[in-house]
């Protein structure tokens, strides 16, 4: 009886050896940013060690001229009363510039920046001094035409983001979306009661922003302070007559708004 049991153990063990190799994985550090990255490892065993890193947030101060942006509050832009009900844009291709000229690319990091939320985590970077940050307002073609349903719920490009804005009838994201009310009277002496919307999409309207900062991003967390002056998105725009675009129906206006992103966003 006992002997047959032993034979049975051996049988099971030998089957395990035959069957299991397909699912046993070599363990080690699988993170290629770690100092002890093991390129042969297939399964991470938690052994990775790293240089010191800092969790970085970008803090966007949303302004309209010299005042803070609050939705539904009245401001004056280009001599006209204006209220915002929505002001947002997608940010991608974030790079931090190191002192030696190297660029740190925060891969697969996308932000959906909107007027009433200010802090956005961009993840961990090596703790050191940085002298610049660059990013795109808008998305590269691949991301722009990707499927929103394929992203995890907490990803900025997911259709579950509360501010998600995607043209489902012309597959692509709305890079910049500005909506609200403007006074359209000829003498600019009325109320902000005419609805405006600027929906800027299309690959060609992605704009690259390059800002100088001089900052030590060290310690466990650090913050990069940037300012958005939403009034500057309307530089050269006559909001009385130029007050709506879905991009394709007014490409010139969409281009103006896109071009203004560079003026609207600055380092604090």
């Amino acid at each position: 009886m006992k002997k047959s049991f032993h034979l049975f153990y051996i049988f099971i063990v030998s089957i395990s050896i035959v069957v299991l190799p397909s699912c046993t994985k070599q363990k080690g550090c699988t993170d290629n940013t770690a100092t002890n990255y093991d390129s042969e490892a297939e399964e991470d065993d938690g052994s990775c060690t790293y240089n010191a890193e800092t969790d970085v947030e970008i803090h966007f101060s949303s302004m309209v001229g010299t005042e803070s942006l609050v939705y539904n509050q009245e401001y004056t832009i280009n001599g006209r009363k204006v209220k915002f009900t929505r002001a947002q844009f997608y940010v991608s291709e974030i790079h931090l510039h190191q002192a030696d000229g190297d660029l740190v690319h925060l891969e697969d990091k996308y932000l959906l920046v909107h007027g009433e939320e200010h802090a956005y985590s961009i993840g961990k970077v090596a703790s050191e001094h940085y002298h610049g940050i660059s990013f795109s307002v808008g998305l590269d073609s691949a991301a722009n035409h990707s499927d929103p349903s394929t992203y995890a719920a907490d990803h900025a490009l997911s259709s579950l983001d509360p501010n998600y804005t995607h043209w489902n009838w012309n597959s692509g994201y709305v890079f910049i979306r500005l909506e609200g009310y403007v006074d359209t009277t000829a003498a600019a002496n009325g109320d902000a009661d005419f609805g405006f919307f600027y929906h800027v999409g299309f690959d060609e309207f992605k704009r690259d922003i390059d800002l100088d900062i001089s900052q030590d991003l060290v310690g466990s967390t650090a913050e990069i302070g940037l300012e958005i002056d939403f009034a500057k998105f309307f530089l050269g725009v006559d909001m009385r007559t130029e007050n709506s675009t879905h991009s394709m129906d007014n490409m010139m206006l969409a281009e103006k708004i896109a071009d203004n992103a560079d003026d609207a966003i600055s380092a604090e």
């Binding site: 049991f5 049975f8 153990y9 099971i12 063990v13 395990s16 050896i17 299991l20 190799p21 046993t24 994985k25 070599q26 363990k27």
Partner: peptide
Amino acid sequence: MLTMQFQLSKNINRLTNAGVI
């Protein structure tokens, strides 16, 4: 890979000592 198999079979040996189930 070989070490992994060895470890696994060792684990299973340990279990078999405890019983069939």
